[in-house]
Design a protein around this nucleic acid. Structure first.
Lengths: 205, 205
DNA sequence: TTGCCCATGTAATTTGTTACATGATTTA
DNA sequence: TAAATCATGTAACAAATTACATGGGCAA
C-alpha cells in the first residue's frame, strides 16, 4: 500500500486495507501490520519518521523507498501467479450437510446472503467514492470487481438453497433403502474415482 | 472429513481434500493433516489403528468417535458463520496496476482465466463422478457450486480486462495534467472518504 | 536396477491472531 | 466528565508451511 506514494502510519494502512483490499485479499491484524512495517524498513524498502504535535502522541509514518518500489513492481510483474485462496466455511457446512437439518442449512445460507448484501452495499459506495481521485483508478476497478463478485456470490447461494432440497431427497431415499441408516460410501471408493478422473485429465492435456 | 464415517489415513484425507474441499476451502499440507489427526485423537474425537500387510508399511487409519461426530455437528449447526476469506493475489496486482504495463496486466488476467478453466473442468468431472454415491449428495452440490463459481470468476476476469483499459486511460490523462508525474492522492484523502462512507452506512441501518 | 511415486512422519520456521498495556483525543 | 475511539505497540500463542528423513512398491 505504500506503493501509492503516500506517507502513512500502520493504523492508516490497517484501516485502508479494511476499506479496499480487504474485499479481495484478507486484511491483516494491526499487530501484523506494525511488525511487517518494521521488517520492510529493516530491508530498506521503507523509511519512517515520527510525526509530533498537532493532536498526535508520536505517530510513526512510513514512506516507500525507490528500492521498495522496485521490489513491489518486480513482484507484481514477475512473481508466479498463484491461484486465489478461498476459505468458505459456509460451503464446508454444505459439504457436511448430512449433519444438519436441511432447514437449518438453508437458514445458514440465508444469513450468508444477508452478509454478502451488506458487503456489496459497502464496496459499491466505496467504489463510487474512489472515482474522485485519478490515482485510485486501479483500486477502483478492483472494488468494482468486488461488487460484481458479491453479486455472483448471492446468485450462487440462491441456487445452492435449491440444491440442498435435492441432496436431502437423495439422502432420504438412500436411507430408506438402507434400513434407516446413513449410507456410508464404499471404503475408499473416491480413490478409484479420483484415479480415473486424473487419468482422463492428464490425457486431455 | 472423518464425519462421513469412513476409516481413512492422513494421506487419504489430504488427497480427498485436494479433490473436493480444496475448491472452496484451502487444502492443508500433509504435515498439518497428520498433526491435526493426532490432536483429534488426543481429544477423543477419533481413534486410530495401524493397518499392516497387503502392500502397506504400517499405515495408520483414523475413525471418528461418537464424541467427534457430535462435536462436528455442533460446529456445523451452531458456530457463528464467519465470512469467507479470500486471498486473490491477481486482484492485488490489479489494485497495484499503476506498477505494471496495462498489457502485462491483461496477460496476467488471461493466465488466471486459463487456470480457472482448468479447475472448472476438473471439478465438473469430479461432480459427475460424485453422483454415483448417494452418501456424496452434499459434497456433490458443493462441487457443483464450485463449478459455477469458476464460471463466474471467468466472467468477472473478462470484465476486468476491459476495465484495465479504462483505468489506464484515466491514469494517463491525469499524468499529462500533472507534468508526466504519477498523480499522488491527496494525503489521507481516503480517510475523509471512509469517514463519510461509514457515516451514511451506519445511518442506513 | 534405477528412478519415481506412494506413504508417513518430524523439526524448524514463518505467518498471523488474540490478549494485553497504554495514553491521548473526541464526542455524548 | 465518562465513555468511546484513535493510535501504537508487546508478548504469548496458534496456524500452517517448508525442508527433511525414511522406506516400500512399481515401472522403464
Amino acid at each position: 500500500m505504500l506503493a501509492f506514494g503516500e506517507e502513512v502510519s500502520g493504523y492508516d494502512i490497517k484501516k485502508w486495507a479494511d476499506w479496499s483490499i480487504g474485499h479481495f485479499y484478507w486484511s491483516p491484524s494491526f499487530s501484523q501490520v506494525y511488525s511487517e512495517l518494521k521488517r520492510l524498513e529493516s530491508h530498506g524498502y521503507a523509511t519512517s519518521r515520527v510525526q509530533h504535535g498537532s493532536g498526535h502522541r508520536g505517530r510513526r509514518v512510513y514512506q516507500i523507498t525507490e528500492s521498495g518500489r522496485r521490489a513491489v513492481e518486480r513482484w507484481s510483474n514477475q512473481s508466479p501467479i498463484d491461484p486465489p485462496m478461498l476459505k468458505h466455511s459456509v460451503l464446508l457446512r454444505v459439504c457436511l450437510g448430512h449433519l444438519n437439518e436441511p432447514d437449518r442449512l438453508k437458514e445458514i445460507l440465508q444469513e450468508h446472503i444477508a452478509h454478502v448484501d451488506r458487503m456489496r452495499q459497502r464496496v459499491a459506495t466505496d467504489a463510487r467514492a474512489a472515482a474522485a481521485e485519478p490515482a485510485w483508478a486501479y483500486p477502483r476497478i478492483a472494488m468494482q470487481w468486488s461488487e460484481r463478485y458479491y453479486a455472483a456470490e448471492r446468485e450462487l447461494a440462491l441456487q445452492l438453497i435449491k440444491d440442498v432440497d435435492e441432496a436431502a431427497a437423495v439422502l432420504a431415499r438412500a436411507r430408506q433403502e438402507n434400513n434407516g441408516e446413513f449410507p456410508t460410501p464404499q471404503p475408499n471408493r473416491w480413490r478409484e474415482v479420483e484415479r480415473k478422473v486424473r487419468a482422463t485429465d492428464s490425457a486431455g492435456r
